[in-house]
Design a protein around this nucleic acid. Structure first.
Length: 479
RNA sequence: GCCCCCAUGGUGCAACGGCUAGCACAUCACUCUUUCAAGGUGGAGAUAGGGGUUCGAUUCCCCUUGGGGGCACCA
């Protein structure tokens, strides 16, 4: 039997980190075992659902590269089937009519809260006999349908938690059909999962308490149970629920912040799961290959942005320049740097991609190779151009040395020239190289300087030196 | 209040009931004297507490504590 899993978000919000991780685990599971990944949008709460949010969820999955085999299906489309199942439950005596009004229920709940009693439904309508019940329907009294929770215990073997058990006495008779005839979540889920022939229900820990209710429904409906698995939730750095400040925003916000989908996926996969060895940097093929539900942890994990950044940096460093170039290009185009030569762009990316952890940081390293003018980073200026006169002198000498270079600009030739100059000036190579780096890159970080000079080429280097000298002379004049 | 789940350094993960509790992020040193956001080396840092079971518990059981989730005519 092929594994069929589903991701079933409600379109009342975007795809946040937690949802994305749940989707990812389902997807990795399906891909690992050659199963099917189904997407179902749970839009039965019409008031809170919107098409925009549905699109946002779809976009989020697409960005991450989580492709859907079946769907998206919409829960609201199955409403007639849900009602039929509710009717079936009623006819079998597994559900009964409840004539309590929402207002009554709310005030009784409030009363219970005050007196410290249990919050649950007291089951008062469960004992209304059939004739009386029918008569009240006849008189036009509205009613909801409640499940008659049987005595005993409900138990299941959870894919991640192992054996789980709860006393049914602690479960209230819950509503499956509202008085307006619309189905409620737990019924709709059971009905849909059965209909879609879902074999494994893998969802967040926050659904643990729904599972026994759904199992009760499956059994009352006399339908085979899927396997349930509850994955731990993701917490914020404070150990509390993930807040907007951290990860409760759309995963697409991470795209905007310059993260790679592969980096994000890798990071999410490592939250509550590991391949069992010390591997951490993995591409999607490796994740799929290594994934197993058995290795999902039971404890919740904290979202660590710094680790995400590090991991993303590793993915940038490992990515082919051709995959990075569209992102870098569009960022540069936005700054007005048009018509960049693709081959050259890729050469630059390959040179600089080791260090940056995000796309903006990568762009910051690429920019100096294309920009007409450059801003000099204050921190770099303070550190390496501390004495403007000396820095200017060094740069002038460098300009001259470069001009006198005959033969091609190879890293070796450049190194010899630059180190030679340092020797003649009787200063350490760093005192020449660092001011040069600031002049060329505008910042204190770059790849090896000889490669930078080589790739920039004589024209741009001369131009940069000129700009830097102008800056330094002005700075010197100001004292 | 009731029910359920969880517990290895600050964080993410390892450790058939059996070496000195391992790796990574972060952090601190040092190093590469060409910068660091890259590389390398090293340091500090954890089995929540208490009881059992066992020759032996991070691992199995119980209690306590702590954290999380749930308890709607929301999903």
């Amino acid at each position: 039997m092929t594994v069929r899993v589903r991701f079933a978000p409600s379109p009342t919000g975007f795809l946040h980190v937690g949802g994305a991780r749940t989707a990812l685990f389902n997807w990795l599971f399906a891909r690992n075992v050659g199963g099917r990944f189904i997407l179902r949008i749970e839009d039965t709460d019409r008031a809170r659902s919107s098409d925009e949010m549905t699109d946002a969820i779809l976009d989020g999955l697409k960005w991450l590269g989580i492709d859907v085999d079946e769907g998206p299906f919409f829960q609201a489309a199955g409403i007639e089937r849900h009602k039929a199942d509710a009717t079936l439950l009623f006819e079998r005596g597994a559900a009964y009519r409840c004539f309590c009004t929402p207002e009554d229920l709310a005030s009784r709940r409030e009363e219970a809260r005050r007196t410290g009693a249990g919050h649950g439904y007291d089951g008062r309508c469960s004992s209304i006999d059939e004739d009386a019940s029918a008569a009240r329907v006849e008189s036009g009294e509205p009613f909801a349908l409640r499940v008659r929770v049987p005595d005993g215990r409900t138990e299941w073997t959870d894919l991640v938690h192992g054996s789980m058990s709860i006393d049914n006495a602690t479960i209230d008779d819950f509503i499956i059909l509202r008085s307006d005839g619309t189905p409620v979540y737990n019924l709709a889920v059971v009905s849909d999962d059965f209909d879609a022939r879902v074999t494994h229900v893998v969802r967040g820990d926050d659904h643990i308490s729904n599972t026994p209710k759904q199992i009760i429904l499956y059994e009352a409906l006399d339908r085979p149970l899927p396997v349930f698995g509850h994955v731990p939730l993701i917490m914020g750095p404070d150990g509390k629920r993930l807040s907007k400040r951290h990860g409760a925003m759309s995963v697409l916000a991470y795209e905007d912040a310059g993260f790679l989908p592969d980096g994000m996926m890798n990071f999410l996969a490592l939250l509550g799961w590991s391949p069992g060895d010390d591997r951490e940097v993995m591409d999607r093929a490796e994740l799929i290959e290594a994934f197993s539900v058995e290795r999902i942890l039971k404890k919740s994990a904290v979202f660590d942005l710094e680790k995400l950044e590090w991991l993303n940096g590793r993915h940038i460093a490992g990515a082919e320049a051709g995959r990075l170039s569209p992102m870098v290009r569009s960022a540069l185009v936005e700054e007005g740097l048009d018509a960049l030569d693709e081959t050259r762009l890729r050469d630059v990316i390959d040179l600089v991609k080791d260090r940056p952890r995000t796309i903006p940081a990568l762009v910051g390293q690429v920019r100096p190779f294309f920009a007409g003018t450059l801003d000099f980073e204050q921190a770099a200026v303070d550190r390496f151009w501390k004495k403007p006169e000396e820095a200017a002198q060094v740069l002038r000498s460098l300009d001259q040395v470069f001009g006198e270079l005959d033969g091609p600009w190879t890293p070796e030739a450049l190194e010899a020239a630059i180190r030679g100059l340092a020797e003649r000036l009787e200063m350490g190579a760093g005192r020449v190289i660092n001011p040069l780096r600031v002049a060329l890159m505008g910042q204190g970080v770059s790849p090896g300087i000889f490669e930078v000079v080589e790739l920039m080429g004589p024209d741009l280097v001369a131009q940069r030196l000129g700009t830097a000298l102008g800056y330094l002379d002005a700075k010197a004049a100001m004292g």
